[in-house]
Design a protein around this nucleic acid. Structure first.
Lengths: 269, 269
DNA sequence: CAATTATTGTCTCAAATTGTAACAATAATA
DNA sequence: TATTATTGTTACAATTTGAGACAATAATTG
Protein backbone atom coordinates (compact mmCIF):
# COMPACT_ATOMS: atom_id res chain seq x y z
CA UNK A 1 0.00 0.00 0.00
CA UNK A 2 1.29 3.41 -0.95
CA UNK A 3 1.91 5.77 1.90
CA UNK A 4 2.65 9.43 2.20
CA UNK A 5 2.87 11.72 5.14
CA UNK A 6 2.82 15.17 3.67
CA UNK A 7 0.10 17.74 3.66
CA UNK A 8 -1.73 19.51 0.91
CA UNK A 9 -5.19 20.33 -0.20
CA UNK A 10 -7.91 18.58 -2.11
CA UNK A 11 -8.30 20.36 -5.38
CA UNK A 12 -8.71 18.29 -8.46
CA UNK A 13 -11.99 16.72 -7.60
CA UNK A 14 -13.22 19.96 -6.20
CA UNK A 15 -12.61 21.76 -9.43
CA UNK A 16 -15.07 19.44 -11.05
CA UNK A 17 -12.95 19.29 -14.19
CA UNK A 18 -12.63 16.26 -16.38
CA UNK A 19 -9.24 14.88 -17.31
CA UNK A 20 -8.05 16.77 -20.40
CA UNK A 21 -6.32 15.17 -23.42
CA UNK A 22 -2.93 16.11 -22.08
CA UNK A 23 -2.10 16.34 -18.39
CA UNK A 24 0.44 19.02 -19.25
CA UNK A 25 -1.94 21.26 -21.14
CA UNK A 26 -1.49 24.69 -19.58
CA UNK A 27 -4.67 26.11 -21.06
CA UNK A 28 -7.08 24.42 -18.63
CA UNK A 29 -9.23 26.95 -16.83
CA UNK A 30 -9.77 27.10 -13.10
CA UNK A 31 -13.08 27.75 -11.35
CA UNK A 32 -13.88 31.29 -10.39
CA UNK A 33 -15.28 32.74 -7.20
CA UNK A 34 -18.13 34.10 -9.29
CA UNK A 35 -19.32 30.61 -10.10
CA UNK A 36 -18.92 29.09 -6.63
CA UNK A 37 -19.75 30.03 -3.07
CA UNK A 38 -16.50 31.04 -1.38
CA UNK A 39 -15.25 29.36 1.80
CA UNK A 40 -17.61 26.40 1.35
CA UNK A 41 -16.52 22.93 0.26
CA UNK A 42 -17.70 19.37 0.60
CA UNK A 43 -15.92 16.05 0.74
CA UNK A 44 -17.25 12.54 0.13
CA UNK A 45 -16.37 9.23 1.72
CA UNK A 46 -17.56 6.87 -1.01
CA UNK A 47 -18.01 3.34 0.31
CA UNK A 48 -18.13 0.18 -1.78
CA UNK A 49 -18.10 -3.51 -0.91
CA UNK A 50 -16.13 -5.87 -3.12
CA UNK A 51 -17.61 -9.05 -1.70
CA UNK A 52 -15.17 -9.29 1.17
CA UNK A 53 -13.97 -5.88 2.25
CA UNK A 54 -15.35 -2.40 2.74
CA UNK A 55 -13.50 0.04 0.51
CA UNK A 56 -13.45 3.76 -0.20
CA UNK A 57 -12.39 5.84 -3.17
CA UNK A 58 -9.21 7.89 -2.75
CA UNK A 59 -7.61 10.36 -5.17
CA UNK A 60 -3.88 10.78 -5.66
CA UNK A 61 -2.79 14.21 -6.84
CA UNK A 62 -0.44 14.65 -9.71
CA UNK A 63 3.25 14.94 -8.83
CA UNK A 64 2.64 15.52 -5.15
CA UNK A 65 2.17 12.11 -3.57
CA UNK A 66 -0.86 13.57 -1.82
CA UNK A 67 -3.93 11.44 -1.21
CA UNK A 68 -7.37 12.94 -0.62
CA UNK A 69 -11.08 12.29 -0.59
CA UNK A 70 -13.08 13.39 -3.61
CA UNK A 71 -14.76 16.72 -2.96
CA UNK A 72 -15.92 19.90 -4.58
CA UNK A 73 -17.59 23.27 -4.31
CA UNK A 74 -21.17 24.49 -4.40
CA UNK A 75 -22.37 26.71 -7.23
CA UNK A 76 -23.97 30.01 -6.36
CA UNK A 77 -27.53 28.83 -7.03
CA UNK A 78 -27.08 25.13 -6.42
CA UNK A 79 -28.38 23.12 -3.48
CA UNK A 80 -25.63 21.62 -1.35
CA UNK A 81 -27.05 18.14 -1.85
CA UNK A 82 -27.17 18.58 -5.62
CA UNK A 83 -23.57 19.75 -5.66
CA UNK A 84 -22.42 16.59 -3.92
CA UNK A 85 -24.48 14.43 -6.30
CA UNK A 86 -22.94 16.28 -9.25
CA UNK A 87 -19.46 15.59 -7.95
CA UNK A 88 -20.29 11.94 -7.28
CA UNK A 89 -21.52 11.54 -10.82
CA UNK A 90 -18.26 12.98 -12.15
CA UNK A 91 -16.19 10.51 -10.14
CA UNK A 92 -18.36 7.40 -10.52
CA UNK A 93 -20.65 7.92 -13.51
CA UNK A 94 -23.63 7.04 -11.31
CA UNK A 95 -26.82 9.03 -10.77
CA UNK A 96 -28.87 9.18 -7.62
CA UNK A 97 -26.33 7.79 -5.24
CA UNK A 98 -27.30 7.08 -1.65
CA UNK A 99 -25.83 10.01 0.21
CA UNK A 100 -25.81 11.26 3.75
CA UNK A 101 -24.17 14.24 5.33
CA UNK A 102 -22.50 13.39 8.65
CA UNK A 103 -20.46 16.36 9.86
CA UNK A 104 -19.37 19.87 8.98
CA UNK A 105 -15.70 20.55 9.58
CA UNK A 106 -15.34 24.17 10.56
CA UNK A 107 -12.05 24.58 12.38
CA UNK A 108 -9.97 27.46 11.16
CA UNK A 109 -6.78 25.43 11.40
CA UNK A 110 -7.96 22.87 8.87
CA UNK A 111 -7.28 25.30 6.02
CA UNK A 112 -3.77 25.99 4.86
CA UNK A 113 -3.15 27.74 1.53
CA UNK A 114 0.34 26.24 1.17
CA UNK A 115 -1.03 22.83 0.24
CA UNK A 116 -3.29 24.30 -2.40
CA UNK A 117 -0.49 26.40 -3.83
CA UNK A 118 1.72 23.35 -4.11
CA UNK A 119 -0.86 21.27 -5.92
CA UNK A 120 -1.62 24.01 -8.40
CA UNK A 121 2.06 24.62 -8.99
CA UNK A 122 2.79 20.94 -9.58
CA UNK A 123 0.02 20.96 -12.15
CA UNK A 124 1.39 24.04 -13.91
CA UNK A 125 -1.42 26.37 -12.99
CA UNK A 126 -0.67 30.02 -12.50
CA UNK A 127 -3.08 31.93 -10.32
CA UNK A 128 -3.09 35.30 -8.60
CA UNK A 129 -1.82 35.51 -5.07
CA UNK A 130 -5.29 36.20 -3.68
CA UNK A 131 -6.89 33.33 -5.58
CA UNK A 132 -10.12 32.35 -3.77
CA UNK A 133 -9.09 28.73 -3.22
CA UNK A 134 -6.31 29.93 -0.93
CA UNK A 135 -8.89 31.24 1.52
CA UNK A 136 -10.21 29.40 4.52
CA UNK A 137 -12.78 26.67 3.74
CA UNK A 138 -15.27 24.80 5.82
CA UNK A 139 -16.31 21.42 4.50
CA UNK A 140 -19.60 19.56 4.79
CA UNK A 141 -18.57 15.90 4.84
CA UNK A 142 -20.83 13.24 3.36
CA UNK A 143 -20.71 9.51 2.97
CA UNK A 144 -22.01 7.72 -0.09
CA UNK A 145 -22.84 4.05 -0.61
CA UNK A 146 -22.47 2.53 -4.06
CA UNK A 147 -22.48 -0.82 -5.76
CA UNK A 148 -18.79 -1.61 -6.21
CA UNK A 149 -19.32 -3.59 -9.41
CA UNK A 150 -21.23 -0.89 -11.28
CA UNK A 151 -18.56 1.76 -11.01
CA UNK A 152 -15.67 2.79 -13.22
CA UNK A 153 -14.11 5.57 -11.14
CA UNK A 154 -12.70 8.53 -13.04
CA UNK A 155 -9.92 10.81 -11.84
CA UNK A 156 -10.01 14.54 -12.39
CA UNK A 157 -7.69 17.09 -13.90
CA UNK A 158 -5.18 17.27 -11.11
CA UNK A 159 -5.22 13.64 -10.02
CA UNK A 160 -3.05 10.88 -11.29
CA UNK A 161 -5.53 8.27 -10.17
CA UNK A 162 -8.62 7.45 -8.25
CA UNK A 163 -8.65 4.02 -6.64
CA UNK A 164 -10.41 1.78 -4.19
CA UNK A 165 -8.62 1.28 -0.88
CA UNK A 166 -9.60 -1.07 1.86
CA UNK A 167 -10.59 0.90 4.94
CA UNK A 168 -7.87 -0.98 6.79
CA UNK A 169 -5.13 -0.15 4.31
CA UNK A 170 -5.60 3.51 3.57
CA UNK A 171 -2.69 5.76 2.63
CA UNK A 172 -2.17 8.77 4.85
CA UNK A 173 -4.76 11.28 3.72
CA UNK A 174 -4.07 14.97 3.68
CA UNK A 175 -5.61 17.63 5.94
CA UNK A 176 -8.40 16.26 8.10
CA UNK A 177 -9.51 13.66 5.58
CA UNK A 178 -8.46 10.71 7.74
CA UNK A 179 -10.65 12.05 10.48
CA UNK A 180 -13.49 12.33 8.01
CA UNK A 181 -13.15 8.66 7.10
CA UNK A 182 -13.10 7.70 10.74
CA UNK A 183 -16.21 9.68 11.50
CA UNK A 184 -17.96 8.38 8.39
CA UNK A 185 -17.38 4.83 9.55
CA UNK A 186 -18.65 5.61 13.03
CA UNK A 187 -21.80 7.09 11.56
CA UNK A 188 -22.25 4.10 9.29
CA UNK A 189 -22.04 1.75 12.27
CA UNK A 190 -24.56 3.74 14.25
CA UNK A 191 -26.98 3.79 11.31
CA UNK A 192 -26.59 0.22 10.16
CA UNK A 193 -29.81 -1.03 11.73
CA UNK A 194 -31.92 2.00 10.88
CA UNK A 195 -31.09 2.81 7.30
CA UNK A 196 -30.98 -0.45 5.35
CA UNK A 197 -27.43 0.21 4.38
CA UNK A 198 -26.99 -3.17 2.74
CA UNK A 199 -29.44 -2.12 0.06
CA UNK A 200 -26.96 0.33 -1.40
CA UNK A 201 -23.77 -1.71 -1.15
CA UNK A 202 -25.09 -4.90 -2.74
CA UNK A 203 -26.53 -5.84 -6.12
CA UNK A 204 -30.35 -6.02 -6.29
CA UNK A 205 -30.33 -9.72 -5.46
CA UNK A 206 -27.98 -11.21 -2.91
CA UNK A 207 -27.66 -14.14 -0.54
CA UNK A 208 -28.11 -13.95 3.20
CA UNK A 209 -24.42 -14.66 3.57
CA UNK A 210 -23.45 -11.70 1.38
CA UNK A 211 -25.65 -9.45 3.46
CA UNK A 212 -24.05 -10.78 6.60
CA UNK A 213 -20.59 -10.08 5.20
CA UNK A 214 -21.54 -6.45 4.56
CA UNK A 215 -22.64 -6.11 8.15
CA UNK A 216 -19.45 -7.76 9.37
CA UNK A 217 -17.27 -5.45 7.28
CA UNK A 218 -19.01 -2.35 8.61
CA UNK A 219 -19.18 -3.44 12.23
CA UNK A 220 -15.69 -4.94 12.16
CA UNK A 221 -16.75 -8.14 13.90
CA UNK A 222 -18.03 -11.60 13.08
CA UNK A 223 -21.76 -12.18 13.45
CA UNK A 224 -23.55 -15.41 14.31
CA UNK A 225 -25.07 -16.90 11.19
CA UNK A 226 -28.31 -18.19 12.67
CA UNK A 227 -29.03 -15.17 14.81
CA UNK A 228 -28.37 -12.85 11.88
CA UNK A 229 -30.69 -14.77 9.61
CA UNK A 230 -33.46 -14.87 12.18
CA UNK A 231 -33.15 -11.15 12.83
CA UNK A 232 -33.16 -10.17 9.16
CA UNK A 233 -36.14 -12.34 8.33
CA UNK A 234 -38.11 -11.10 11.32
CA UNK A 235 -37.65 -7.49 10.21
CA UNK A 236 -39.90 -8.15 7.23
CA UNK A 237 -37.79 -6.11 4.84
CA UNK A 238 -36.56 -8.91 2.58
CA UNK A 239 -38.23 -10.68 -0.30
CA UNK A 240 -37.14 -14.23 -1.09
CA UNK A 241 -36.49 -15.20 -4.69
CA UNK A 242 -35.13 -18.23 -6.54
CA UNK A 243 -32.13 -20.19 -5.33
CA UNK A 244 -28.63 -19.38 -6.44
CA UNK A 245 -26.81 -22.47 -7.74
CA UNK A 246 -23.14 -21.71 -7.38
CA UNK A 247 -21.89 -25.10 -8.54
CA UNK A 248 -20.75 -25.92 -5.03
CA UNK A 249 -21.19 -29.27 -3.34
CA UNK A 250 -23.85 -28.17 -0.89
CA UNK A 251 -27.35 -26.82 -0.51
CA UNK A 252 -27.92 -23.70 -2.62
CA UNK A 253 -28.83 -20.46 -0.81
CA UNK A 254 -31.87 -18.40 -1.64
CA UNK A 255 -31.49 -14.99 -3.25
CA UNK A 256 -33.13 -12.05 -1.49
CA UNK A 257 -33.91 -8.46 -2.36
CA UNK A 258 -35.04 -5.53 -0.25
CA UNK A 259 -38.76 -4.88 -0.37
CA UNK A 260 -39.73 -1.60 -2.02
CA UNK A 261 -40.51 0.87 0.72
CA UNK A 262 -43.09 3.56 -0.03
CA UNK A 263 -41.40 6.80 -1.03
CA UNK A 264 -37.76 6.53 -0.09
CA UNK A 265 -37.10 9.74 -1.96
CA UNK A 266 -34.42 12.29 -1.25
CA UNK A 267 -35.89 15.76 -1.44
CA UNK A 268 -33.18 16.96 0.93
CA UNK A 269 -32.33 19.56 3.41
CA UNK B 1 -49.45 30.97 22.77
CA UNK B 2 -48.55 33.61 20.25
CA UNK B 3 -48.64 32.53 16.69
CA UNK B 4 -47.52 34.03 13.44
CA UNK B 5 -47.33 32.66 9.96
CA UNK B 6 -45.15 35.07 8.09
CA UNK B 7 -41.67 34.66 6.81
CA UNK B 8 -38.51 36.59 7.47
CA UNK B 9 -34.92 36.08 8.38
CA UNK B 10 -32.99 35.57 11.55
CA UNK B 11 -30.90 38.61 12.12
CA UNK B 12 -30.77 40.02 15.56
CA UNK B 13 -29.09 37.13 17.25
CA UNK B 14 -26.82 36.67 14.29
CA UNK B 15 -25.54 40.18 14.52
CA UNK B 16 -24.19 39.32 17.90
CA UNK B 17 -25.09 42.74 19.18
CA UNK B 18 -26.26 43.46 22.67
CA UNK B 19 -29.49 45.34 23.27
CA UNK B 20 -28.71 49.06 23.14
CA UNK B 21 -30.04 51.67 25.59
CA UNK B 22 -32.76 52.67 23.16
CA UNK B 23 -34.29 50.27 20.69
CA UNK B 24 -34.75 53.24 18.34
CA UNK B 25 -31.14 54.35 18.36
CA UNK B 26 -30.23 54.68 14.69
CA UNK B 27 -26.51 54.73 15.33
CA UNK B 28 -26.08 51.00 15.96
CA UNK B 29 -23.54 49.48 13.64
CA UNK B 30 -24.08 46.36 11.57
CA UNK B 31 -21.53 43.58 11.07
CA UNK B 32 -19.38 43.75 7.99
CA UNK B 33 -18.41 41.10 5.50
CA UNK B 34 -14.80 41.82 6.42
CA UNK B 35 -15.35 40.55 9.93
CA UNK B 36 -17.41 37.46 9.07
CA UNK B 37 -17.28 34.62 6.59
CA UNK B 38 -19.91 35.30 3.95
CA UNK B 39 -22.67 32.82 3.12
CA UNK B 40 -22.10 30.90 6.34
CA UNK B 41 -24.43 31.00 9.34
CA UNK B 42 -25.34 28.79 12.27
CA UNK B 43 -28.52 28.35 14.28
CA UNK B 44 -28.99 26.86 17.73
CA UNK B 45 -31.82 24.83 19.18
CA UNK B 46 -31.26 25.48 22.87
CA UNK B 47 -33.03 22.90 25.03
CA UNK B 48 -33.93 23.31 28.67
CA UNK B 49 -36.05 21.27 31.06
CA UNK B 50 -38.21 23.11 33.58
CA UNK B 51 -39.01 20.08 35.69
CA UNK B 52 -41.94 18.99 33.59
CA UNK B 53 -41.52 19.98 29.96
CA UNK B 54 -38.78 20.20 27.39
CA UNK B 55 -38.44 23.78 26.19
CA UNK B 56 -36.39 25.73 23.66
CA UNK B 57 -35.36 29.39 23.41
CA UNK B 58 -37.06 31.40 20.66
CA UNK B 59 -36.44 35.01 19.63
CA UNK B 60 -39.15 37.41 18.52
CA UNK B 61 -37.99 40.16 16.19
CA UNK B 62 -38.87 43.75 16.77
CA UNK B 63 -41.98 45.03 15.00
CA UNK B 64 -42.26 42.05 12.68
CA UNK B 65 -44.03 39.30 14.59
CA UNK B 66 -41.30 36.99 13.35
CA UNK B 67 -40.02 34.15 15.53
CA UNK B 68 -36.64 32.54 15.02
CA UNK B 69 -33.94 30.41 16.56
CA UNK B 70 -30.88 32.17 17.95
CA UNK B 71 -28.05 32.08 15.47
CA UNK B 72 -25.04 33.94 14.22
CA UNK B 73 -22.07 34.14 11.93
CA UNK B 74 -18.50 32.88 12.05
CA UNK B 75 -15.61 35.31 12.25
CA UNK B 76 -12.89 35.07 9.65
CA UNK B 77 -10.40 33.37 11.95
CA UNK B 78 -12.79 31.72 14.37
CA UNK B 79 -13.57 28.03 14.68
CA UNK B 80 -17.17 27.17 13.88
CA UNK B 81 -17.60 25.55 17.28
CA UNK B 82 -16.21 28.60 19.06
CA UNK B 83 -18.55 30.88 17.14
CA UNK B 84 -21.56 28.92 18.31
CA UNK B 85 -20.30 28.95 21.88
CA UNK B 86 -19.79 32.71 21.65
CA UNK B 87 -23.35 33.19 20.48
CA UNK B 88 -24.68 30.88 23.20
CA UNK B 89 -22.87 32.88 25.83
CA UNK B 90 -24.42 36.08 24.50
CA UNK B 91 -27.93 34.63 24.72
CA UNK B 92 -27.61 32.69 27.98
CA UNK B 93 -24.64 34.07 29.89
CA UNK B 94 -23.28 30.53 30.20
CA UNK B 95 -19.84 29.25 29.26
CA UNK B 96 -18.97 25.83 28.01
CA UNK B 97 -22.42 24.72 27.02
CA UNK B 98 -23.01 21.16 25.86
CA UNK B 99 -23.27 21.54 22.11
CA UNK B 100 -23.67 19.25 19.17
CA UNK B 101 -23.98 19.95 15.50
CA UNK B 102 -26.72 17.89 13.83
CA UNK B 103 -27.25 19.06 10.26
CA UNK B 104 -26.10 21.62 7.71
CA UNK B 105 -28.94 23.22 5.80
CA UNK B 106 -27.69 24.00 2.32
CA UNK B 107 -30.70 24.39 0.06
CA UNK B 108 -30.58 27.45 -2.12
CA UNK B 109 -34.29 28.11 -1.57
CA UNK B 110 -33.89 28.54 2.19
CA UNK B 111 -32.42 32.01 1.66
CA UNK B 112 -34.63 34.93 0.77
CA UNK B 113 -33.31 38.49 1.07
CA UNK B 114 -36.80 39.96 1.44
CA UNK B 115 -37.14 38.74 5.00
CA UNK B 116 -33.79 40.22 5.96
CA UNK B 117 -34.63 43.52 4.32
CA UNK B 118 -37.89 43.70 6.23
CA UNK B 119 -36.30 43.06 9.61
CA UNK B 120 -33.58 45.64 9.04
CA UNK B 121 -36.13 48.16 7.84
CA UNK B 122 -38.38 47.62 10.86
CA UNK B 123 -35.37 48.25 13.05
CA UNK B 124 -34.48 51.47 11.22
CA UNK B 125 -31.28 50.18 9.69
CA UNK B 126 -30.22 51.56 6.34
CA UNK B 127 -27.88 49.35 4.34
CA UNK B 128 -26.69 49.25 0.75
CA UNK B 129 -28.63 47.20 -1.73
CA UNK B 130 -25.84 44.66 -2.03
CA UNK B 131 -25.42 44.26 1.72
CA UNK B 132 -23.78 40.89 2.40
CA UNK B 133 -26.60 39.60 4.64
CA UNK B 134 -28.93 39.65 1.63
CA UNK B 135 -26.86 36.92 -0.01
CA UNK B 136 -27.55 33.23 0.14
CA UNK B 137 -26.59 31.55 3.43
CA UNK B 138 -26.09 27.98 4.45
CA UNK B 139 -26.56 27.21 8.11
CA UNK B 140 -24.89 24.65 10.34
CA UNK B 141 -27.58 23.76 12.86
CA UNK B 142 -26.64 22.79 16.42
CA UNK B 143 -28.49 21.78 19.50
CA UNK B 144 -27.45 22.83 22.98
CA UNK B 145 -28.47 21.47 26.37
CA UNK B 146 -28.54 23.77 29.36
CA UNK B 147 -29.75 23.85 32.92
CA UNK B 148 -33.01 25.76 32.74
CA UNK B 149 -32.67 27.26 36.21
CA UNK B 150 -29.21 28.75 35.69
CA UNK B 151 -30.13 30.86 32.71
CA UNK B 152 -31.33 34.42 32.30
CA UNK B 153 -31.82 34.62 28.53
CA UNK B 154 -30.95 37.91 26.89
CA UNK B 155 -32.43 39.22 23.66
CA UNK B 156 -30.33 40.99 21.06
CA UNK B 157 -30.54 44.29 19.27
CA UNK B 158 -33.29 43.45 16.86
CA UNK B 159 -35.39 41.22 19.09
CA UNK B 160 -38.19 42.25 21.35
CA UNK B 161 -37.77 39.17 23.45
CA UNK B 162 -36.20 35.81 23.91
CA UNK B 163 -38.36 33.25 25.69
CA UNK B 164 -38.73 29.63 26.57
CA UNK B 165 -41.38 27.78 24.61
CA UNK B 166 -42.56 24.26 25.20
CA UNK B 167 -41.64 22.10 22.23
CA UNK B 168 -45.33 21.32 21.89
CA UNK B 169 -46.46 24.93 21.83
CA UNK B 170 -44.00 26.63 19.52
CA UNK B 171 -44.97 29.68 17.49
CA UNK B 172 -44.53 29.33 13.75
CA UNK B 173 -40.83 29.84 13.15
CA UNK B 174 -39.54 31.60 10.08
CA UNK B 175 -37.58 30.06 7.21
CA UNK B 176 -36.62 26.46 7.88
CA UNK B 177 -36.28 26.89 11.63
CA UNK B 178 -39.25 24.64 12.43
CA UNK B 179 -37.58 21.91 10.48
CA UNK B 180 -34.41 22.51 12.44
CA UNK B 181 -36.27 22.03 15.71
CA UNK B 182 -37.85 18.85 14.44
CA UNK B 183 -34.52 17.43 13.35
CA UNK B 184 -32.84 18.50 16.60
CA UNK B 185 -35.45 16.57 18.56
CA UNK B 186 -35.01 13.50 16.37
CA UNK B 187 -31.27 13.62 16.94
CA UNK B 188 -31.76 14.06 20.67
CA UNK B 189 -33.98 10.97 20.78
CA UNK B 190 -31.47 8.90 18.86
CA UNK B 191 -28.64 9.99 21.13
CA UNK B 192 -30.41 9.76 24.46
CA UNK B 193 -28.86 6.46 25.48
CA UNK B 194 -25.37 7.18 24.19
CA UNK B 195 -24.63 10.69 25.31
CA UNK B 196 -25.80 11.06 28.91
CA UNK B 197 -28.09 13.86 27.93
CA UNK B 198 -29.66 14.11 31.35
CA UNK B 199 -26.36 15.36 32.71
CA UNK B 200 -26.75 18.65 30.87
CA UNK B 201 -30.45 19.29 31.39
CA UNK B 202 -30.52 18.69 35.15
CA UNK B 203 -28.85 20.28 38.15
CA UNK B 204 -25.78 18.45 39.49
CA UNK B 205 -27.88 16.45 41.92
CA UNK B 206 -31.28 15.08 40.99
CA UNK B 207 -33.68 12.31 41.89
CA UNK B 208 -34.28 9.24 39.80
CA UNK B 209 -37.75 10.53 39.09
CA UNK B 210 -36.43 13.80 37.71
CA UNK B 211 -34.09 11.90 35.44
CA UNK B 212 -36.97 9.74 34.28
CA UNK B 213 -39.04 12.82 33.51
CA UNK B 214 -36.27 14.20 31.30
CA UNK B 215 -36.24 10.96 29.37
CA UNK B 216 -40.01 11.00 29.06
CA UNK B 217 -40.04 14.58 27.80
CA UNK B 218 -37.45 13.80 25.14
CA UNK B 219 -38.90 10.50 24.04
CA UNK B 220 -42.47 11.74 24.25
CA UNK B 221 -43.70 8.66 26.10
CA UNK B 222 -44.16 7.37 29.62
CA UNK B 223 -41.52 5.00 30.95
CA UNK B 224 -41.93 2.28 33.53
CA UNK B 225 -40.53 3.39 36.86
CA UNK B 226 -38.92 0.14 37.99
CA UNK B 227 -37.43 -0.77 34.64
CA UNK B 228 -35.99 2.71 34.23
CA UNK B 229 -34.40 2.62 37.68
CA UNK B 230 -32.91 -0.81 37.13
CA UNK B 231 -31.49 0.22 33.75
CA UNK B 232 -29.93 3.44 35.02
CA UNK B 233 -28.36 1.79 38.05
CA UNK B 234 -26.99 -1.10 35.98
CA UNK B 235 -25.23 1.33 33.64
CA UNK B 236 -22.91 2.31 36.45
CA UNK B 237 -22.91 5.99 35.58
CA UNK B 238 -24.68 7.34 38.66
CA UNK B 239 -23.39 8.12 42.09
CA UNK B 240 -25.83 7.99 44.99
CA UNK B 241 -25.83 10.79 47.57
CA UNK B 242 -27.94 11.82 50.53
CA UNK B 243 -31.71 11.65 50.55
CA UNK B 244 -33.85 14.56 49.47
CA UNK B 245 -36.51 15.39 52.08
CA UNK B 246 -39.26 17.18 50.22
CA UNK B 247 -41.63 17.47 53.17
CA UNK B 248 -43.99 14.99 51.58
CA UNK B 249 -45.75 12.20 53.43
CA UNK B 250 -43.74 9.35 51.99
CA UNK B 251 -40.29 7.82 51.72
CA UNK B 252 -37.67 10.34 50.59
CA UNK B 253 -35.83 9.63 47.33
CA UNK B 254 -32.07 9.53 47.02
CA UNK B 255 -30.21 12.22 45.14
CA UNK B 256 -27.91 11.10 42.34
CA UNK B 257 -25.22 12.69 40.23
CA UNK B 258 -23.42 11.54 37.12
CA UNK B 259 -20.02 10.03 37.75
CA UNK B 260 -17.14 12.05 36.38
CA UNK B 261 -16.06 10.44 33.16
CA UNK B 262 -12.37 10.69 32.24
CA UNK B 263 -11.82 13.54 29.80
CA UNK B 264 -15.18 14.52 28.44
CA UNK B 265 -13.60 17.47 26.70
CA UNK B 266 -14.81 19.20 23.57
CA UNK B 267 -11.85 19.95 21.32
CA UNK B 268 -14.21 19.92 18.39
CA UNK B 269 -14.67 19.63 14.76
C1' DC C 1 -25.76 -44.35 -8.26
C1' DA C 2 -24.84 -44.32 -3.35
C1' DA C 3 -21.76 -42.15 -0.10
C1' DT C 4 -19.49 -37.89 0.99
C1' DT C 5 -18.88 -32.95 1.67
C1' DA C 6 -19.98 -28.30 2.72
C1' DT C 7 -23.34 -25.14 3.49
C1' DT C 8 -28.09 -23.67 4.22
C1' DG C 9 -32.55 -23.07 6.63
C1' DT C 10 -34.93 -24.08 10.63
C1' DC C 11 -35.71 -25.58 15.15
C1' DT C 12 -34.70 -26.28 20.12
C1' DC C 13 -33.16 -25.17 24.44
C1' DA C 14 -30.40 -22.13 27.45
C1' DA C 15 -29.07 -17.60 28.86
C1' DA C 16 -29.86 -12.92 29.23
C1' DT C 17 -32.77 -9.07 29.14
C1' DT C 18 -36.98 -6.68 29.84
C1' DG C 19 -41.94 -6.26 31.41
C1' DT C 20 -45.00 -6.41 35.29
C1' DA C 21 -46.37 -6.67 39.68
C1' DA C 22 -45.73 -7.24 44.53
C1' DC C 23 -43.91 -5.74 48.81
C1' DA C 24 -41.49 -3.76 52.51
C1' DA C 25 -39.45 0.75 53.94
C1' DT C 26 -40.31 5.30 55.27
C1' DA C 27 -41.31 10.52 55.74
C1' DA C 28 -44.89 13.35 56.81
C1' DT C 29 -49.77 13.84 58.19
C1' DA C 30 -54.10 12.85 60.55
C1' DT D 1 -50.22 5.32 66.34
C1' DA D 2 -52.47 4.58 62.06
C1' DT D 3 -52.66 6.42 57.41
C1' DT D 4 -50.93 8.02 52.97
C1' DA D 5 -48.02 8.35 49.06
C1' DT D 6 -43.92 7.25 47.03
C1' DT D 7 -39.52 4.89 46.92
C1' DG D 8 -36.14 1.02 46.41
C1' DT D 9 -35.85 -3.66 45.70
C1' DT D 10 -37.12 -8.19 44.75
C1' DA D 11 -39.64 -11.95 42.43
C1' DC D 12 -41.55 -13.99 38.62
C1' DA D 13 -43.24 -13.94 33.73
C1' DA D 14 -42.53 -12.82 29.01
C1' DT D 15 -39.56 -11.82 25.42
C1' DT D 16 -35.33 -11.63 23.06
C1' DT D 17 -30.89 -13.35 22.05
C1' DG D 18 -27.04 -16.86 22.22
C1' DA D 19 -25.48 -21.27 20.93
C1' DG D 20 -25.91 -25.48 19.10
C1' DA D 21 -28.30 -29.44 16.82
C1' DC D 22 -30.18 -31.32 12.82
C1' DA D 23 -32.27 -32.31 8.60
C1' DA D 24 -32.17 -30.75 3.67
C1' DT D 25 -29.60 -30.48 -0.41
C1' DA D 26 -26.31 -29.38 -4.54
C1' DA D 27 -22.34 -31.06 -6.32
C1' DT D 28 -18.46 -34.32 -6.13
C1' DT D 29 -16.37 -38.83 -5.41
C1' DG D 30 -15.80 -43.65 -5.56
Amino acid sequence: MKQNNQDGQNIGAKLGLERPPSIRDKKRKLPTSEEFIPHLAFDSVIFGFNGRQLKILVLEYHNTGLFALPGGFVKREENLYDAVQRSLKERTGLDNIYLEQFHTFGNHARSNPLFMRRILAENDFEVPDNYWLFDRFISVAHYALINYDEVAPRADTLSDSINWYSIHELPTLMMDHSEMVKMALQTLKRNIDKKLIGMNLLPPKFTMNQLKEVYEAILGEKLRRTTFQRKMLSMDILERHEKLFQGKAHKAPYLYSFKKINALSRSED
